[in-house]
Design a protein around this nucleic acid. Structure first.
Lengths: 210, 210
DNA sequence: GTCTATATGTTGATAGAC
DNA sequence: GTCTATCAACATATAGAC
């Protein structure tokens, strides 16, 4: 028996979680209303509490699901057995593609990190942190070797990762400003990102050279 | 007659605005409470409405004051008659210094841009936007000339500005994560920023070379 | 201008029928 | 599991004394 596709086919808990994701990400946790989530899920408000007890716990579930696919993905892309240049291409492509589909995601993540740090920290397991530390260590060794050989400029991996991720986050995180200041018109932002897709990897790679 | 210094010496309206700044920036507009602002200002809640009528208008006043010093400062630094390399040094230094003093500022600005785009747009005057467009045009010409002469890699100014600003914003915008993942310990973040102060300008300058 | 007291409207959360 | 009805708590905003 094939499961019916679309929202209607999912079980209620998933429908609520998806709706909560949509509303929390768009409005921010503090700006979100349980009523709007219920409407979005096509259920009653009381049902939200039946499945998740409190808004706080629902917010936690939403952030957890997002975080669970975020750091691991970065670690997978940066940990692959490819040259650093190819990794940059992969990460920029993956992030810009994802954010194009979910434009409010960067703003939401930053918002949560700023105003609900506890929730953000709780969503990252010790294994995840450890995996990242391992990755950073391996990358740093790799880079140091290249530096020694004169093929690369000296650089701290943590600093580079922040710059890399931040460069993908930023245009979406302040999108209204980008549109107003740089990219007017109906498809202005789209064009801005299309251009970034080409320029950003080239820019970052140039910075790697000795 | 010398005015007494400190909070107590300022007139009430300013004290309220300063308090609102503190609370809004720290909690986010939606998470902020008028009561907390009143407490912070050392006045009664009713007085907030006497001076600013609504929370919305108070939030507008706070964001406006912040925005008024933000874009102009960037334009001033990037528009000075110095080489691009020196401008990078100046901007990175100015932002990292400011954010060290006001760590919640980047998160707040992103939060407002994401969840209250109208307010953000209203806070930027047409003159400001025009000034930025003029600056971008001049910089682009300058760069194109250098590219022609083979001294610089081709680059779009708007893209570079986002990367530059984003690289300064990002570590503060996700500070709890940076601390947990990269910079543990009491002064870990401080050290992270101190290192960034050196690495980031060098990194960006390397990316400019042809 | 500044306060106390209160009104007004939301919002998260629960009780209880079905 | 899902709904309707309702509560209790809170937050913004106002009225009115001083």
């Amino acid at each position: 028996m094939v499961k019916p596709s679309g929202q209607a086919g999912k079980d209620t808990q998933t429908r609520i979680l998806d709706a909560a994701d949509k509303v929390f990400v768009r409005r921010g946790t503090d700006g979100a209303r349980m009523q709007e989530i219920a409407d979005e899920a096509g259920v009653n408000k009381a049902l939200l509490h039946y499945y998740f007890r409190t808004k706080e716990q629902l917010a936690h579930a939403v952030f957890l699901r997002i975080a669970s696919s975020f750091l691991p993905r970065l670690i997978a892309l940066m940990g692959s057995a490819t040259p650093l240049d190819a990794k940059i291409d992969a990460v920029v492509d993956a992030y810009l593609t994802r954010f194009t589909r979910h434009p409010y995601l960067p703003g939401y993540i930053v918002s949560e990190a700023s105003h609900h740090p506890d929730r953000v920290l709780a969503a990252h397991s010790d294994e995840g942190r450890k995996a990242l530390r391992t990755l950073v260590g391996r990358l740093q060794k790799e880079i140091d070797r290249e530096v020694e050989a004169g093929h690369m400029a000296p650089m701290t991996v943590e600093q580079f990762l922040i710059t890399l991720v931040g460069s993908c986050f930023m245009p979406f995180a302040v999108r209204p400003l980008v549109v107003a200041l740089y990219a007017p018109g109906p498809r202005g932002f789209e064009r801005f990102i299309a251009r970034r897709r080409k320029e950003l990897p080239a820019f970052l790679k140039r910075a790697l050279r000795p």
